[in-house]
Amino acid sequence: MIFLILITLIISFILYRRYFPVLGVRFINLKNLEVGKIKIIDIRDYHESFKDPVNGSINIPIAYLNRNINQIPNDELFVVSSSSLEKNIGIRLLRQKGFRVVGYIISDSNEIHKKDNSIKMENNCC
């Protein structure tokens, strides 16, 4: 019985860290972002960030975030991710390392999502 409770708690903790939204971090549209005060961290894969770059951002994919944490300036951070799962894991990792994340945006194939609402973005690429 104790073993089942322990396994249930471990599974619940893992699911919470991956899928439960991060509290205290809100969606901010890139147009409303003050780039001088906030540093943009793009945690999308290199292929995605190359197709749809965010000007002035530091691109460190989520898989390399822990390894390259020293490249991130100690300022307020804004996270660009490709999914809510990636956003949750990235923000939690950054907070764990002592960074202050103030906002996020989820970019998925030229669409920026805010929960259920979506805003189309223009892509002026070739």
Rank of each mutant, 00 (worst) to 15 (best):
I89A: 05
K115S: 15
S118L: 14
S82G: 14
I62N: 05
S82R: 09
F99M: 07
L65W: 08
N117V: 15
S109C: 05
E76G: 04
D116A: 07
N55W: 11
D116I: 10
I58G: 01
V54W: 03
N110E: 13
N70H: 14
I69S: 10
N124F: 10
I106L: 10
I105C: 06
N110V: 07
I91W: 02
Q71V: 08
M121F: 09
L85W: 04
N68K: 15
R92Y: 01
K120G: 10
D52H: 14
P53M: 11
K97P: 03
V79C: 02
G90Q: 02
I89M: 09
S84R: 14
S107P: 02
N110H: 12
G90W: 01
N123T: 15
D52Y: 15
D116L: 07
K120M: 15
Y104E: 07
R100L: 14
S107N: 07
R92N: 03
G103S: 08
S57C: 09
S83D: 07
L77W: 05
S81G: 15
P73M: 04
N74H: 14
N123I: 15
I112H: 07
H113T: 13
N74S: 12
F78K: 02
K97S: 10
I105Q: 03
I60K: 00
A63S: 12
I105K: 09
G103Q: 00
F78I: 00
I105Y: 01
L93E: 14
K120F: 11
S109M: 01
E86A: 12
N117R: 14
N68C: 01
G56C: 09
N110I: 10
Q71D: 13
N110G: 09
P73K: 09
M121Y: 10
N74Q: 13
N59C: 11
K87Y: 04
I105R: 03
A63R: 06
I72R: 02
S118R: 13
V54G: 02
G90P: 05
K114M: 12
L77Y: 12
G56W: 03
V102P: 01
S83H: 02
I105P: 00
Y64V: 00
N117P: 00
S81H: 06
S57W: 04
D75V: 10
V101Y: 02
L94S: 03
I58S: 02
Y64M: 13
S57T: 06
